[in-house]
Design a binder for these strands. Structure first.
Lengths: 138, 138
DNA sequence: TGCTGATTTGAACTCGTTACAATTTTATTT
DNA sequence: AAATAAAATTGTAACGAGTTCAAATCAGCA
């Protein structure tokens, strides 16, 4: 058993590890802030000076395709990414812009029964938008 | 009582009617296909030759701000719009690209109870992605 | 060491969307 | 009805997230 959770996550999803891919996965594992590709790039370019923004985009696309990460379109302007692939919902605060996790596994499970006959669902996203508890009090 | 549902929808949401705004609202009322701004422009420029794409974008933004329409970020690449403001979910087929309505009013209502204390929600979006019944059978 | 394929890189590019100033239309006042 | 003010529309230019692509680099292996 490896001591590196990020390494394990890559291998578990049939992704050949590399310095860049490990760095991106480690960032997603350590920061549950739903970062954008740009935020990830800016966070990692310090430790990997040759890092290219294209690599970050390619890596994230690969992660999503392999099921190692999730892409959120809650923002509408920037895609952001989540390393937690267990089902849960998200809340976007329109004031501070932060994305929060919301436990909703059972609700998402229920929702699958509402689909018309013959529709096969591959992913479900539940997005809330409004004001978070910090921004609501000011 | 007016005979024009689009006109009524605008007035009901404090939107001053104009030729362009009426045309956009009429299109949304007549076509529940969740069109993009570009699709709406292309559909209307025939009957309003001077129509500007900027006007379509401005109009849709106004509609959303006033609650007369909803913007969907289900695609991640193109925003699309829905003239039906009653709560329901959406299904995006990754093969044909169509967006389908899914009845989920009660589920969305339930979901509001899952939010942490102090969070105030202004809108909830439930997005399914997968294969529609047409595309699944081929 | 040399070869082959996968990965990374950066520059150029695409395209949805917005900013902005000018023009046109609509409403209001005299 | 003419003049004035306010609002809406238009087109161009610009922005920026994300992608394409060819060249360079790296990893695995004979």
């Amino acid at each position: 058993m490896s001591e590196n959770a990020a390494y394990d996550a890559l291998v578990a999803h049939d992704i050949k590890p590399s310095v860049q891919r490990l760095a991106v996965m480690e960032y997603l594992s350590a920061h549950h802030t739903h970062p954008t590709a740009d935020e990830i790039y800016n966070a990692l370019v310090g430790q990997i000076p040759t890092l290219s923004k294209t690599t970050v985009y390619n890596t994230l696309r690969l992660f999503v395709r392999q099921g190692a990460a999730t892409m959120l379109t809650i923002d509408g302007h920037n895609a952001c990414f989540d390393g937690v692939t267990a089902p849960h919902a998200h809340f976007l605060c329109r004031s501070c812009g932060k994305v929060f996790d919301v436990p909703a596994a059972s609700l998402l499970q229920e929702g699958l029964r509402l689909l018309p006959e013959g529709f096969s669902t591959e992913c479900v996203d539940l997005y809330y938008r409004g004001l978070c508890n910090q921004c609501a009090n000011n």
